[in-house]
Write a protein that binds this DNA or RNA. Structure first.
Length: 609
DNA sequence: ATAGGGTTAG
C-alpha cells in the first residue's frame, strides 16, 4: 500500500528537505534497501537526518512496503535520545497493522517520558484489542516497566496473567519485570514469591529484590539477601550497591553503611554518579555530614541530584551557611537546580530564620520557572513563623494557590504557639482537624496547645473528640543499630529478647524524667490509661525503648543513635535531653525535618522546639 | 531480521 506513505508525506515534513543528501550520512545507496536504511539509522545523529532518511525511503516505491525499514525508522523516533516521540506517534498512526516490534517501540518510547503516564498501558491494550500482533517477552517487559513507574498494580497483575497465557513466563526479562513491578508496588511478598521461583537468579534479579527491600527501609532483609547473593556466587555491581547503601540510609544504619562503603572499595566496584550520590545521602541521613561532604568533594562530575543531596544534607544538619554557599557554587558550575534543590535551600533558610534570603531564593526559584510545590510553601510558612512573622505566615497560607495540606496547618499551629497568636490557633486547629480528622498526632498537638495556656476543659474536649471520631493511635516505631543489626521497636511490642533488662533501664529513666519535673501526659492522652499505667505508657514509647536498649548495650562512650522516628513529639526531645545529661552521652535524634545532637543535655540545634 | 530487566536527591 504505497499510497499510504506517499499521501501522508506532506503532513510529516515541515520543510522541503527531500532532495538533499543527508550531510553526515555518506552512504552511497542509490535505492534505499532495507539493510541500507537499517545501517543509516544506526549512524543517524539527529531528527533532521532521520527526516531525510525517511524522505528518501518514502520516495522510493521499492521500499514502501518494507515494514522492516519502517519499524527501524519508527524505533529511532520513539527510542533514541535524539528522537522525537511526537513524530513517532504520527508515523505509528499511519501504519495500518503495526508489527510487534513497532508496538514495542511505542510502548517503551512512551514510558521513557519525564512524566510517566498510562500511555504505554493504553498502547498495550490497543495492541491486544487489534489482535494483529501478539505480545512477546519484550512487550511484557516494557509494559511491566511502565506499570512499575506509576505503580499500576491492577494492570500489572493482569500482565502477570498474560505472561502465562502467552507462554512468556519463562523469560528472565518477564520474570525480573514482574518481580520489580511487585516490588515497586510495595508488594514484597508477591515479589519474593516470584524471586524464589526463578531457577537461575542473575545479577538483575538479585538487585531488583534487594532494591525492593531497600526502598522500604528493610535493611536486615536487604542485607541478608545481599549476603545470600554472594553465597550464590553472584558478584554485586554498582547498581546493587546503590540499593544496599539506600537501605542503610533509610534505616539510619551508620555502621552498616560504613561497612558497605568499605566493601565497595575493597571489591573494586566503581562508584559512579548514582552510587556516590547514594553514599552522600546515606552519610547525611546517618548523621555523618563530614563523610558525606568528603564523598561529595571528591566527585568529578555532579548532577542536580548530587548537588541537591549534599545541600539537603547540610540543611537538615542545620549547617545553613555551608548549604547556601554550596548552592551558590552549584549555580556557578551551571548545574540547573530543581524543586528538590530549593527544598534544601529554603529549609536551610527556615532553620536559621533567614527571612530576606528565603524571600530572595523564593523569587529566584520563580525566575527559573520552577513552580513551587507544597514542600516549598511549607518551608516558607516555617520560615515566617520562626521569624516571628506569624500574621504574614497566616495570610501566606490563606493566599496559597494550592490547597494547604496538613503539614502546612501543623506548621502554622506550632507557629501560633510560639508567636502567642492563640486567637488564630482555633481557626488553624479547625482547618487541620477538618482536613485530617483521623490522625492522632493532630489531636495531641492541639491539646498540647490548649494545655500550654491552661485551658484544661478544651484539653479534655479534644480527648473526647478524638475518642468520638474513633481515632486509632498508630504505634510509634524507632530503631537502633547494634553490632551490624538493626533492632526495631514498635510501641507495645514486647517481643525483644532483652525486654526485661530494657524495662529495668526504662524504670530508671522514668524516675529521672519525673525528678526533672516532667509529667508524661502526652502519652497519657494517647493511651488514656489510669495512673498506674501512666509509667508504662511513657516507657512504651518506642524512642525511649530504643534509648534504653542503647544504654544497655553501649557501655563505651560512643554515641547512642536514635533514628527513624516516625513520630517524634516534643516530649521525646525533653526525655532525650534529660537522658543525655544524666548518662553523659551524645544522643542523636533524627526526625523527619532535621537532626538533634544532644551533648550533655544540650541540643546543638539552635532552633530546638 | 530489529530491542530488553535492577540504581541516586524531597
Amino acid at each position: 500500500m504505497p499510497y499510504l506513505y506517499k499521501s501522508n508525506h506532506c503532513r510529516l515534513f515541515h520543510s522541503p528537505v527531500t532532495n538533499r543528501t543527508p550531510p553526515s550520512v555518506s552512504h552511497p545507496c542509490e535505492l534505499l534497501e532495507e539493510e541500507c536504511v537499517a545501517s543509516l539509522i544506526q549512524k543517524c545523529p539527529d531528527m533532521r537526518t532521520l527526516r531525510q532518511i525517511h524522505a528518501h525511503f518514502v520516495k522510493s516505491p521499492a521500499n514502501s512496503s518494507s515494514f522492516y525499514a519502517l519499524s527501524k525508522i519508527l524505533a529511532f523516533c520513539a527510542l533514541s535520545p535524539s528522537g522525537d516521540l511526537a513524530y513517532a506517534r504520527r508515523l505509528f498512526a499511519q501504519i495500518p497493522h503495526p508489527n510487534v516490534f513497532s508496538w514495542n517501540s511505542m510502548i517503551r518510547g512512551s514510558s521513557q517520558l519525564p512524566h510517566p503516564s498510562k500511555e504505554p498501558i493504553f498502547l498495550y491494550k490497543q495492541m491486544l484489542q487489534k489482535g494483529f500482533a501478539l505480545p512477546n517477552s519484550f512487550t511484557l517487559a516494557f509494559v511491566l516497566k511502565a506499570c512499575s513507574l506509576i505503580s499500576a498494580f491492577l494492570e500489572g497483575r493482569q500482565i502477570h496473567c498474560h505472561a502465562f497465557k502467552h507462554g512468556l513466563y519463562s523469560s528472565p526479562f518477564v520474570q525480573t519485570g514482574l518481580l520489580n513491578f511487585y516490588a515497586k508496588c510495595e508488594e514484597l511478598v508477591a515479589a519474593r514469591l516470584i524471586f524464589d521461583e526463578i531457577p537461575d537468579k542473575n545479577l538483575i534479579a538479585w538487585s531488583a529484590m534487594i532494591g525492593g527491600y531497600a526502598r522500604l527501609g528493610l535493611v536486615n532483609a536487604a542485607l541478608e539477601l545481599f549476603r545470600e547473593m554472594q553465597g550464590a556466587g553472584i558478584s554485586p555491581d554498582e547498581v546493587t550497591m546503590v540499593s544496599v547503601i539506600q537501605a542503610c540510609a533509610k534505616a539510619g544504619a551508620l555502621d552498616l553503611g560504613k561497612w558497605v562503603h568499605a566493601f565497595i572499595d575493597r571489591n573494586g566496584i566503581k562508584a559512579d554518579l548514582e552510587l556516590k550520590t547514594a553514599l552522600i545521602d546515606m552519610y547525611a541521613k546517618c548523621g555523618e555530614i563530614d563523610r558525606a561532604r568528603k564523598v561529595f568533594d571528591r566527585m568529578e562530575v555532579r548532577d542536580t541530584k548530587a548537588w541537591s543531596s549534599m545541600i539537603v544534607g547540610l540543611a537538615i544538619h542545620g549547617l545553613v551557611k555551608d548549604a547556601l554557599e554550596l548552592f551558590s557554587r552549584m549555580l556557578e558550575s551551571k548545574v540547573r537546580p530543581n524543586h528538590v534543590t530549593f527544598i534544601g535551600v529554603l529549609s536551610a533558610c527556615a532553620h536559621s530564620g533567614l527571612v530576606s534570603d528565603g524571600r530572595r531564593f523564593w523569587s529566584i526559584m520563580h525566575e527559573l520557572g520552577i513552580e513551587p510545590m507544597m514542600e516549598h510553601y511549607g518551608c516558607m510558612v516555617d520560615l515566617l513563623c520562626r521569624s516571628g512573622l506569624f500574621e504574614e505566615a497566616y495570610s501566606f497560607v490563606n493566599t496559597m494557590p494550592i490547597m494547604p495540606n496538613s503539614v502546612i496547618w501543623r506548621t502554622l499551629l506550632v507557629g501560633c504557639k510560639s508567636n502567642g497568636s492563640l486567637d488564630k490557633a482555633e481557626l488553624v486547629a479547625k482547618q487541620l482537624l477538618e482536613l485530617e480528622p483521623l490522625s492522632a498526632e493532630n489531636y495531641v498537638l492541639v491539646s498540647n496547645l490548649y494545655a500550654s495556656s491552661s485551658q484544661w476543659e478544651k484539653v479534655s474536649y479534644m480527648r473526647k473528640k478524638m475518642k468520638d471520631n474513633g481515632v486509632k493511635v498508630v504505634p510509634g516505631c524507632s530503631s537502633i543499630e547494634v553490632d551490624g543489626f538493626l533492632h526495631e521497636f514498635v510501641v507495645g511490642d514486647e517481643s525483644h529478647p532483652e525486654i526485661k533488662e530494657i524495662r529495668k533501664v526504662l524504670r530508671e529513666i522514668t524516675e529521672r524524667v519525673r525528678l526533672a519535673g516532667h509529667e508524661p501526659w502526652t502519652s497519657a492522652v494517647l493511651h488514656d490509661v489510669g495512673e498506674e499505667e501512666k509509667e508504662v505508657a511513657l516507657c512504651e514509647h518506642s524512642e525511649r525503648l530504643a534509648i534504653a536498649f542503647g544504654l544497655l548495650k553501649t557501655k563505651a562512650p560512643v554515641p547512642i543513635r536514635v533514628v527513624k522516628n516516625l513520630r517524634v513529639c516534643s516530649d521525646c526531645h525533653e526525655v532525650t535531653k534529660i537522658i543525655s545529661k544524666a548518662y553523659n552521652r551524645e544522643i542523636i535524634v533524627r526526625d523527619r525535618v532535621r537532626f538533634h545532637r544532644f551533648v550533655n543535655g544540650v541540643c546543638s540545634c539552635n532552633d530546638f522546639w
